[in-house]
Design a protein around this nucleic acid. Structure first.
Ligand SMILES: [Mn+2]
Ligand SMILES: [Mn+2]
Ligand SMILES: [Zn+2]
Ligand SMILES: [Zn+2]
Lengths: 147, 147
DNA sequence: TTACTATTGAAAAAAAATTGCAATAAGGTC
DNA sequence: GACCTTATTGCAATTTTTTTTCAATAGTAA
């Protein structure tokens, strides 16, 4: 676990005139220890299992801050709730999701960033993030009659 | 309003052994009369204002069917709920969303489809849909201090 | 230390989506 | 058309997700 995401978060919090609390740091650290996509409930349970008594309200309040400073991203909405991932220190990547087995695969392609950059440049946009998703049936699931 | 989406939907419903009801057709027609992104509540209110007494439950039950047969798509999740659009008869397109004014712009780029096709081919995926989103601050909003 | 005020957890509330159920009606068969 | 089977409907209740309220706590600057 690198220390730089902590510095980034603290600087961001300070610059906004907010307060850097233990709860915020614990949430940040936990998120960067998850090397997968996660949702609020998973994060909450993980913290809880480690003995932390951090409320879901605090998680819901902290996530937007982490997203705003570019450390975390909403990845996809599935089963009625959002799924997240930490992104600092990772190359931007796209996601394939199987509509049947719900497997999620990541992949990269420089053309995706290119398209985003060019569009941002053309319209004077301050680009914050991109999301590219492919939905379909994986090789194992295709032909098995959909769901 | 083309008739072909109706045929597609009816064929799909029949092939699944389901029943083609007036409610389902009314929902379909209404969706194809909205030339914009919409959410469940907007759709419900539009139907209601036209005198239809279609329940939200029916809308929530019908949307997955329309998505499954490729007529409708989830576009983005914002303000805690999903937003949709009809896609039949439209070129695949990407979305830019301004994080400040929430404006949504559409644009096309053949490279996006290329990337998706190539990935699907490579891994034997039965591709159903792709979603490409750019998030950032539009030319009007940038520099105005974020939110 | 003191003062100010942002943050917290817990509970309540709000919002979104799903489900149970009795009445209805689609659509196949005669 | 009449009849039968069973999917679908609206409504209300429920579940799930997210936000908000509020009193207690605690971060930060002076
Ligand atoms: Mn990922
Ligand atoms: Mn669109
Ligand atoms: Zn699969
Ligand atoms: Zn804007």
């Amino acid at each position: 676990m690198n220390v730089s995401e902590i510095e980034i978060f603290r600087d961001f919090i300070k610059k906004k005139g907010l307060r850097y609390t233990p709860e915020r740091e614990i949430i940040l650290k936990e998120i960067f220890s998850i090397h997968d996509h996660f949702d609020v409930d998973e994060l909450y349970l993980r913290l809880r299992n480690k003995g932390h008594r951090i409320s879901k309200a605090s998680i819901y309040r902290t996530l937007p801050l982490l997203i705003e400073c570019g450390l975390v991203q909403e990845v996809y909405h599935e089963d009625g709730h959002m799924h997240y991932e930490h992104i600092y220190g990772h190359e931007p990547h796209a996601h394939f999701r199987c509509l049947s087995c719900r497997r999620v695969e990541e992949f990269q392609d420089p053309r995706l960033e290119e398209v985003a950059q060019e569009y941002a440049q053309k319209y004077g946009i301050d680009l914050k993030m991109t999301r590219f998703e492919i939905l379909g049936y994986c090789a194992n699931c295709r032909g098995k009659g959909g769901l």
